[in-house]
């Protein structure tokens, strides 16, 4: 019936209202159904692989713990005070990291519902609808606390009745969400810089692992706060998995680097530079995780050309590292010349 031309009569605004309200409330059910099947329904092969991964990570952690205790024991024999200090630091970090992990798991359980936003955004971007975009973005702004911001007002004035949902979402993404992008990116740069400096300075693999774990959990939370939206259940699961993997890599790369330098018979100088390289490596891993966290928290996915690049983050991070480690570099240069 609606495909025919109809001459319309004007209606007063009071009657127009329910129409709009109807389109507004029609939002919820759209994205509910394709929910459960989508993300994690892998074959048993993947489960076996992840079992192996967890086993491997556990083994590495155990070995590292043993090595750590051995190192501490040796250190305590030579310098008792220093050993006690390290033991205290380790215990503190362990406590902080454990606490962060516990909080993270607890929130996980409450967040199952939030993935709907992502699915709905994707649905609106993929379909040529015209009625739901504005209501969706307004709800997003309410959820993230952006609805009073200047950028939100700019978005509202830029809208017209002829924009389709995709254009409405793209405009929202490019007007309102870019500001959150900037805030989140600043957090990523900061945390990645911290991780790389810390790993370049520290000497104990287990401390490194815990530090990486702690910083990356904080990073995920800070990024989520920048967007004012929670990462969503699956987003968090994926992030946590990535964090654990990064943590293991931080430890493993350290062991490998240590063996490598010893084999090469390098002195203190060589060790310093491998530590710096390791720090930067871990920093880049952290930055990657930060970008992943941003993607998980951003309600409307980036277009391919808007995606922030790792290169941009690592450039900022390297500037940080250079500021902290500048003295070491000079030492090394001097050492190289004297040789």
């Amino acid at each position: 019936m609606e495909d025919r031309r109809v001459v319309l009569e004007p209606i007063d605004e009071a009657l127009a209202e329910p129409v709009r309200a109807a389109t507004r409330t029609a939002l919820e059910p759209v994205a509910e159904e394709p929910a459960q099947a989508a993300p994690e329904a892998p074959a048993s092969a993947r489960r076996a692989r992840s079992g192996l991964l967890i086993g491997g990570i556990g083994l590495v952690a155990l070995l590292l713990l043993a090595q750590m205790l051995l190192g501490l024991w040796r250190l305590a024999q030579d310098y008792p005070l220093l050993g006690a200090g390290w033991a205290l630091a380790l215990a503190l970090l362990l406590g902080v990291a454990g606490n962060a992990l516990w909080r993270f798991w607890r929130t996980l359980a409450r967040l199952r519902g939030r993935d709907a936003l992502h699915r709905q955004a994707r649905f609106l971007l993929d379909h040529d609808g015209v009625s739901e975009g504005v209501a969706f973005c307004t709800r997003l702004a309410e959820l993230s606390g952006d609805s009073g911001s200047a950028s939100f007002q700019r978005w509202r004035t830029a809208l017209s009745a002829t924009h389709n949902d995709r254009e409405v979402l793209a405009l929202y993404s490019q007007t309102v969400l870019v500001e959150a992008d900037e805030r989140a990116l600043a957090q990523v740069v900061r945390h990645a810089g911290d991780v790389s400096v810390m790993l370049a300075l520290s000497r104990f693999p287990l401390v490194d692992m815990l530090f990486v774990l702690w910083r990356q959990l904080r990073l995920a939370e800070d990024v989520a706060r920048a967007y004012g939206v929670d990462a969503g259940y699956w987003g968090r699961v994926r992030l946590l998995r990535a964090i654990v993997r990064n943590m293991a890599l931080a430890g493993a790369s350290e062991v490998a680097a240590e063996v490598g330098t010893q084999l090469a018979g390098a002195g203190v100088i060589g060790k310093l530079s491998t530590a710096a390289a390791q720090g930067i490596g871990a920093g880049i891993l952290t930055a990657r995780l930060g970008l992943r966290a941003m993607a998980a928290c951003r309600a409307i996915p980036w277009r391919e050309d808007e995606r922030p690049r790792l290169a941009r983050v690592s450039a900022g991070m390297l500037a940080n590292v250079r500021r902290y480690l500048g003295a070491d570099d000079e030492d090394r240069e001097r050492g190289g010349r004297s040789r």
């Binding site: 109809v6 001459v7 319309l8 009569e9 004007p10 209606i11 009657l15 127009a16 129409v19 002829t162």
Partner: peptide, 18 residues
């Protein structure tokens, strides 16, 4: 040049965008 504006209107008891 957008010659028309979008507005809801009534036809046969239903409300439609026109």
């Amino acid at each position: 040049v957008q010659a028309t504006e979008v507005a809801p209107g009534r036809a046969g008891g239903r409300t439609l965008n026109g």
